[in-house]
Amino acid sequence: MREWLRDREHLVRMGILFAGALAVFLVVRAVMVPKDFGTYGHFRTGALADNMAHPLVFAGRQACGDCHDDIVASRKGSKHEQIGCEACHGALEAHASADDPSALKPKLPDVKTICLVCHRENVAKPAGFPQVDPKDHGDGGPCTSCHNPHHPEIS
């Protein structure tokens, strides 16, 4: 028996070393890997909540319509009806969620530039999309002198 052990002593030593290393690995792993890792896949489930926690900046057209229902009504049937309010008026979550929204009134868009963001002539724009060269159209005046931005059609 003693002889048998002596011949294999190096194997036993290696086995003990290996078992020790495995134990250390398991302990370190249990400490380091978060409890919620791997619930839905190879990631920390808390990362979903981290991504959800980002603050809102754009309120969304629903929030605008909650108070400004008169404007929503005035856009009915217009070519601009489907455009989100914040497409022209900018990000307004701070205004929408304020205790006193009137204290945080957004600035009116500059009508000399905002219309041209979309309507300036460009060959890459889809044919049929209304586009103008401001040099040939409108005498350089603000677009609002003829067009109502909430209902831009001229009857």
């Binding site: 959800m52 969304g60 455009i83 989100g84 914040e86 497409a87």
Partner: peptide, 23 residues
């Protein structure tokens, strides 16, 4: 892009979709 995960999980659309004038 996180597909505005903080928005879509609250029932809102993404910021890019919100402001796209052409849909």
């Amino acid at each position: 892009c996180s597909l505005c995960y903080h928005r879509i999980t609250k029932g809102l659309t993404t910021a890019c979709c919100e402001v796209c004038p052409m849909g």
